[in-house]
Structures are given as structure tokens and as C-alpha cells.
Design a protein around this nucleic acid. Structure first.
Length: 321
DNA sequence: CACTTGACCTGTCCGC
DNA sequence: TGCGGACAGGTCAAGT
């Protein structure tokens, strides 16, 4: 999915457009993507307005003035794309999806309108064409005619409408670790979080959302390269100095990526449908077979913690010598 | 508990 | 060109 920098980029984008917008209609092709009942939608979403768009870990939270919130996890392939002004667009979503094991939603379908993309960059900067497309799972329409599309090829992602006060009680939020970019997140706390995971690889520990929030496969590999740590290293053998270096590198990499609008490997786009450019700056991710920017050794890719893992085999050794 | 593996889905790419 | 298998940015539930 979108990792922390991608979700943060979407949050920043949506924050420009959504506050004050009032929901008029929602449609969904798939209860897995949006399981709320029509009754909940009618009572707490329709006529509610957006107050604020927030993020915790890789999850977006849209607070409404009905004291309800939309909680959104994009998982691997989710996209949230805002489309301003639209007319004559066909809204029969996923009409070709005859094999779906879920019945079509009975949510009220928005009136026909015509898509005009808002803020779309040059076509080559966009992965999103006419919307809705066959990956569109949920469409929100606002009273001014603008729309928010939730596209999700693999259907792992979800959106839930919950009372705002219950958001922090969902299982994921009760267990998730601290925000790595929070001003009060210290090196000491970072080191301490890994004690529980001493016997696993540092890569598995970084990906564990209950240790630190928001790190995924791209930034785990990038931060470990920055700190000259082999991703397969057992967490327990890493020195205080090494973990401190990892703390610095992780924060640097996450901040740089937010500045670059996130990473687009395959599906990720920002709130206006545009790709992020961080991968141009990546040192190891998706660079297997190329030269390490530091020591020119060939970058390898293999499996660590069940995930494709990119690393320089030489840098950590040079460091120890 | 800590740790690993497979499942959830669809699409694409690669080798035969 | 077709077909099977591996793999893809993330969690979960199960197993040891």
C-alpha cells in the first residue's frame, strides 16, 4: 500500500479540497470495501460536512460534523482521487463485474454527471483515467457536484463509517506503535520498542506496525541501507549506535518522501490522481542488479520476513571492519 | 508471548 | 499466443 509518506501526501491533498464539503450520496459495489448499512449512511453521512482530514499510521480519518468519521485503509492498491466539477458522467460502476460474490449495493446512486478531472497533471504523470473505472469500489458525491473515488484493484482496502469517539478503539489503533515523525518521538523510545522483537530480523521488526507505525516495504529497505544494516540481521545484535543511526535514517527517508509526494511503484497516486516521485531518489528499492550508490557493489534482492528485500551486501561489512 | 506462514484479491510479467 | 506460477507498496488469523 501506500506507506506513511503516501498516506500523508493524500491527507495533505484532501485537506485542500474536502473541509466544508457536504455529502449528498455514496455508492459502493462491494460490502468488503464499505460495509456500513444504508441506515448508518442515511443518518450519519448524508448531509454531514467534512471537518478535518487526519492520518494515523497508514490510515486516513475524515472527521465529519455528525460526530462520525470515515476511517480509510488503502492497503496495497487503494487510491483516493478527488474530482471537482463533473457532468454527464456514467455512474454504473463495475457493471462488468458479474462474477462478484457480493450483491450490488443498494446505496443511492448519484445522478449522472460528466467527468472532468481536477488538478490532473500531464497524462504521463497520472495512473488514473476516466473515473469510475473497473477498480472503483466506492464513490462519494458532495452537494457541490464534486466527487471522491475510492479505487482498489485488489479489494484489500476498506472504508468504515464510525462514531468519532470509537475510532481510537478499533483493534488496529489500540495496538499500533508511535508515529516515527512525531516531534516527541525520541531515539530512546525507538530503541526500546525493538526489545520485544530481539529474535527476529530487523526488517520484520520495522514492518511490525505495533513496534513503529507507518513503515512498509519501501522505507524499511531504504532506511536500513542508510544505516548500513543488513535487513536479515537479528534485531538483538544491533548496537545502540546502529539503532540510533536507523532512527535518523528512517526519519530522513520518510520526510524526504513526503516532500517528493511519496513513491509510485505501481498503483499509488495522490489525491489528484498524480504519481509520487520518491522512487527516483530511492537507493536500493527496485534497484536490484544496479550499483550501490555508496560502494558500487551490485544491489541484491531476496526474501526477508516474507517480503522482497533490496540491500547492498557490502556496506554493512565495510561498516564493521 | 514471539515468530512464521498462508490467506485475502486482481493484475502483470516471465519462462516454457 | 497460451498457460502456469511467482510476485506486488499490508494486515490478519492461524499455526508452531
Amino acid at each position: 500500500m501506500p506507506e506513511l509518506p503516501e498516506v500523508e501526501t493524500v491527507r495533505i491533498g484532501l485537506s485542500q479540497f474536502l473541509p466544508g464539503k457536504r455529502f449528498k450520496a455514496v455508492s459502493s459495489d462491494n460490502p468488503k470495501s464499505f460495509p456500513n448499512s444504508n441506515e448508518d449512511v442515511r443518518r450519519f453521512l448524508y448531509k454531514a460536512a467534512v471537518k478535518e482530514v487526519k492520518r494515523r499510521a497508514k490510515v486516513l480519518i475524515i472527521d465529519l460534523d455528525s460526530e462520525y468519521s470515515l476511517v480509510i485503509h488503502m492497503k496495497m492498491t487503494g487510491q483516493l482521487v478527488f474530482v471537482k466539477e463533473a457532468k454527464n458522467m456514467k455512474l454504473q460502476i463495475n457493471s462488468n463485474d458479474q462474477n462478484s460474490k457480493f450483491p450490488p449495493s443498494t446505496f443511492h446512486l448519484p445522478p449522472s454527471t460528466d467527468a472532468v478531472r481536477f488538478g490532473a497533471g500531464h497524462p504521463s504523470d497520472s495512473l488514473v483515467g476516466e473515473l469510475p473505472d473497473r477498480s472503483t469500489r466506492v464513490i462519494f458525491e458532495f452537494t457541490d457536484g464534486s466527487k471522491l473515488f475510492f479505487n482498489d484493484q485488489r479489494k484489500f482496502g476498506w472504508i468504515r463509517l464510525l462514531p468519532t469517539i470509537e475510532v481510537s478503539n478499533i483493534d488496529f489503533f489500540k495496538k499500533v506503535g508511535p508515529e516515527p515523525l512525531a516531534a516527541d518521538f525520541s531515539k530512546q523510545e525507538f530503541r526500546g520498542r525493538f526489545k520485544r522483537r530481539a529474535k527476529t530480523s530487523i526488517k520484520a521488526a520495522l514492518l511490525d506496525q505495533t513496534v513503529i507505525a507507518g513503515v512498509g516495504n519501501i522505507y524499511a529497505d531504504e532506511a536500513l541501507w542508510g544505516a548500513k544494516i543488513n535487513p536479515a540481521s537479528r534485531t538483538g545484535i544491533l548496537s545502540t549506535g546502529k539503532l540510533d543511526k536507523l532512527y535518523e535514517e528512517l526519519r530522513t527517508v520518510l520526510e524526504l518522501s513526503i516532500e517528493k509526494g511519496g513513491s509510485t511503484d505501481r498503483n499509488y497516486v495522490d489525491a489528484e490522481g498524480k504519481k509520487g516521485s520518491y522512487l527516483k531518489f530511492a537507493k536500493v528499492f527496485r534497484r536490484e542488479g544496479l550499483a550501490c550508490p555508496r560502494c558500487a557493489t551490485t544491489i541484491l534482492k531476496n526474501r526477508v520476513a516474507g517480503r522482497g528485500t533490496h540491500y547492498c551486501p557490502k556496506c554493512p561489512q565495510l561498516e564493521q571492519a
